[in-house]
Design a protein around this nucleic acid. Structure first.
Length: 279
DNA sequence: CCGGTCACCTGAGTGC
DNA sequence: TGCACTCAGGTGACCG
């Protein structure tokens, strides 16, 4: 489900809920979603204290301090399509469907990891493993961390259709299907445009629109179209601001043409044939 | 190198 | 009701 604004929202909520807190028990109900194995991970996590929770692209990076050894420990989380974190106070006896892992905290409260489609994962790493992981990922910068000049330069280095390029996390990290469609609409760029055909001015505008849209979406705690939820079960509001995403057949708010849906790079793609020309 | 397809899963929505 | 089919916010492997 989540793209940059949703992951950012969840990360902020996680910080408020778990920073400084100590894990009493860590339970895994679906072994395939964790690394290393459930027993080893549980042993690492038990007694550990959350020191920081940050976002890198669509990844959630949890930094903990292990009990006993005092070693730094990372838990790298990717929510993929339907991953969620849910905070529960008290001790409810039955757990919701699709809960695959649980952090139980000293002093009360628990954090559940839930994922209907089971694509997401929680990977525990040592400091060394985390450093190697970062290098291997080779994630591009967050679009909110670079200026329009750098964005245009990175785009110029890319080849091929603009949409798959923006979805490529190695070029820019954090964008997904919703926000790419929305940003291309706002910038007046057809999703099949080739990166090499996009003018410098248009690339600068694209970055400004990406930044604006992401900031607005973060302020509204992301988009809830089917099942994205924050920690407390509250959804986002940005879906009410979508202009083209899943709006096929409706009138374009800018020109009145009907929004179309096609497939680009295997992803459903929504655009206005009137506003979004090529090049 | 590129683009297309599938696989990983479960569920919601739609049409017959 | 039931069944068949499409689609879903992500990503990686494989194939021509």
């Amino acid at each position: 489900m989540p793209e940059l604004p949703e992951v950012e929202t969840i990360t902020r909520e996680l910080r408020g809920a778990v920073l400084g807190r100590k894990i009493k028990h860590f339970q895994v109900y679906l072994p395939k979603i964790v690394r290393p194995g459930p027993r080893r991970l549980a042993r690492l996590m038990t007694g550990a204290v959350f020191e920081d929770v940050t976002r890198r692209g669509k990844f959630i990076i949890m930094r903990l301090r292990a009990s006993g050894t005092g070693q730094v420990l990372y838990l790298v989380v990717h929510l993929k399509m339907t991953g969620q974190f849910l905070w529960l106070d008290g001790n409810p006896r039955d757990r919701p469907r699709h809960v695959h892992a649980a952090f139980v905290f000293e002093g009360g409260g628990r954090l559940l990891y839930r994922d209907m489609r089971q694509f997401g994962y929680l990977h525990g790493m040592t400091q060394e493993e985390f450093t190697a992981w970062e290098k291997e990922q080779c994630l591009g910068p967050d679009p909110l961390d670079i200026d329009s000049e750098e964005f245009a330069a990175r785009l110029r280095a890319g080849k091929g259709r603009i949409k798959p390029l923006l979805l490529n996390q190695k070029l820019i990290s954090g964008l997904g299907n919703i926000y790419v469609d929305e940003a291309l609409f706002a910038a007046g760029i057809h999703p099949l445009s080739r990166a090499e055909d996009i003018s410098r001015a248009r690339a600068l505008k694209l970055h400004r629109e990406i930044s604006r849209i992401l900031k607005e979406a973060i302020a509204l705690r992301g988009s809830t179209t089917s099942n994205y939820l924050g920690l407390t079960g509250r959804g986002g509001e940005y879906q009410n601001r979508h202009r083209v995403y899943r709006k096929q057949g409706q009138a374009c708010p800018a020109c009145g043409c009907l929004i179309e849906r096609t497939v680009v790079g295997g992803r459903g793609t929504h655009f206005c044939p009137g506003c979004q020309g090529r090049g």
